[in-house]
Write a protein that binds this DNA or RNA. Sequence first.
DNA 1: GAAGCTCTTGCATAGTTGTGCAATATGACA
DNA 2: TGTCATATTGCACAACTATGCAAGAGCTTC
Lengths: 101, 101
Amino acid sequence: MTIDKMTTVELGLAVVGKALAHPARVQVLRALEGGERCGCELVPLLGLDPSVVSRHLAILSRAGLVASRREGVRILWRLASPDIPRILDCLANLTCERTPR
Amino acid sequence: MTIDKMTTVELGLAVVGKALAHPARVQVLRALEGGERCGCELVPLLGLDPSVVSRHLAILSRAGLVASRREGVRILWRLASPDIPRILDCLANLTCERTPR
DNA sequence: GAAGCTCTTGCATAGTTGTGCAATATGACA
DNA sequence: TGTCATATTGCACAACTATGCAAGAGCTTC
């Protein structure tokens, strides 16, 4: 494994990892499994300042996990791929399957 | 989605996310796809101090991504589940498939 | 027991990430 | 144009994460 392969593949994966590394962002992804939501719906759901929610969404977007479209004054967010719920389930199962300690 | 569900499911997923959030840890997982490795083999591969590698392995272990066994003076690390390579591939494809910007 | 190798932990420091407030931007609509 | 609702960005500060060195713990062999 060479250092240049690392900067392409491992770094890309790490960007997705970073995006998943905050409970609020995972919560956003789970909420979007139910369909499009605008930021102002996510704010009370997460109990965070609108500016903070905006930044979490930007991180998810940069990682390629969510996409958005504007509708009037709102911005509607959706999962960037239909595979995401399944992948999240796989990751969650990994955590659950391991021996308790 | 209630706050107590978040502390169980979303937090667990975030622990896995945090584990994947560092290129060196992704590199470790990719290296272990080839089979068991001891820490002293990973040190030159990653180009990091042994203490740092030890800490990365501890984080992966706490996330349930790797497991270990002692063999004499060495500790051999392996992937905790055979599904991990496939899941990493899925995550990597998410990043690659997205539109360039 | 002493010496050697491997791995982990304590500590200090540097770097990164998360947060809220205030200010600004963008679109709708009277 | 002015006002309202929504979203983003600048800034300062708090919280967390990564790192390397030094010290120590665990196992093996002499």
